[in-house]
Nucleic acid binder design. Structure first.
Lengths: 194, 194
DNA sequence: TGGTAGCTTGACGCCATGTCAAGTGAGAAT
DNA sequence: ATTCTCACTTGACATGGCGTCAAGCTACCA
């Protein structure tokens, strides 16, 4: 796929590394230097900073094989198992895309293209939430106080990147604590009592 | 307090109006035009964009009298009542500061001063969360799976501005739906079962 | 009459993104 | 060996924010 071009790969890896380390304020010149090419040469491969960031996320999806990870949750038999598997899969993916996610979210405020790209990816997460909620509803486990749309929104919000950042980075939770708490919280939020 | 200077007030009100309407990308020149003065004159009143935004939040706190609103939750007798009152008070304050909050959060990525100011305000919210959690614990209502710190972090996360934005703006929830769901969710998340 | 406070206009430096033009060097094609 | 082409380099430049500076205007005050 995107592995054709070696320079392109160097750029994407350099950008990814920098984004994971530094804040979201990485400049094009930083990426160029880290990739060992001139700043202008970046524009031979990516038309803009936004598209470079988007390409980094796609590159990560490939390298980390997010599809395979989510497959497990799709194969779960019960609704509860599907919910738990989805939370684990996505919750464990967030730390790996944390850097790019921050940069893309920061850019989304000012750049329509970045915004569209981020929204698109979050829509995919929402699909996963919706599928888990539907499975719960099918099993009759969904809290009657919630319709499926409302429940999906709620789960999507609980699994949002900003909340992950707040709990893990601001509050200093470990990844294990985050996952455990999210599993517990999602269960309490969505499941019928009893 | 800050009401001394009429031009200063004009600036703060203009900035506030613009921030509530437009995105977080309001420029100094926009604010100046809306306030009816020159761009350079802004700097006679505020040393930087960051400090202007911070001043807007303080100005809002004064105008909207956030202290009085929170007083109600402090006067609640039971822990549950205190929790409910705090969620209502803060949850109803968010829409009023939404614009400035967005701008300040966007700026926090790149500007240390903006970041410090925002963190400071969020710390105050955390205090409120901690007080509610402590009241619950005192009543023996806190879920034994949670210690007070963990519970406070959780409540703080649930009441975070990004989550409000996602549910209300991205998902299109009404303010009433947001409040109702938060009340329900906070109860489920924090209270002992039964 | 003179001073001062608060504003205006116009120009400038800084810094990031993105563009353009001219060159260089290695490898392929002939 | 010559030529062509591709990927890159260097250097310069436009654009558009923020923030600063200098000089001038005006209304009010002593």
């Amino acid at each position: 796929m995107s592995s054709e071009n070696p320079t392109r790969r160097k750029i994407l890896n350099a950008a990814w590394t920098l984004l994971e380390q530094g804040g979201s304020q990485i400049r094009m010149s930083d990426i160029a230097r880290a990739a060992g090419i001139s700043r202008q040469a970046l524009y031979l491969h990516f038309p803009s900073r936004a598209e470079l960031l988007v390409a980094v996320t796609r590159h990560l999806d490939e390298e980390k094989d997010i599809d395979a990870r989510l497959a497990e949750s799709r194969n779960a038999t019960t609704g509860q198992a599907r919910l738990a598997a989805f939370i684990a899969a996505w919750g464990n993916y967030i730390p790996e895309i944390r850097g790019v996610a921050r940069a893309l979210m920061a850019m989304a405020d000012s750049d329509a293209e970045a915004r569209a790209a981020w929204d698109d990816r979050m829509d995919a997460v929402r699909q996963g939430c919706a599928a888990a909620v539907t499975a719960l509803a099918r099993d009759g486990q969904l809290d009657p106080a919630l319709d499926e749309g409302r429940a999906t929104d709620l789960l999507w919000g609980l699994l949002s990147v900003p909340l992950w950042i707040q709990l893990r980075e601001t509050c200093g939770w470990s990844q294990e604590a985050y996952l455990a708490e999210m599993q517990r919280l999602a269960g309490r939020a969505l499941l019928a009592e009893g």
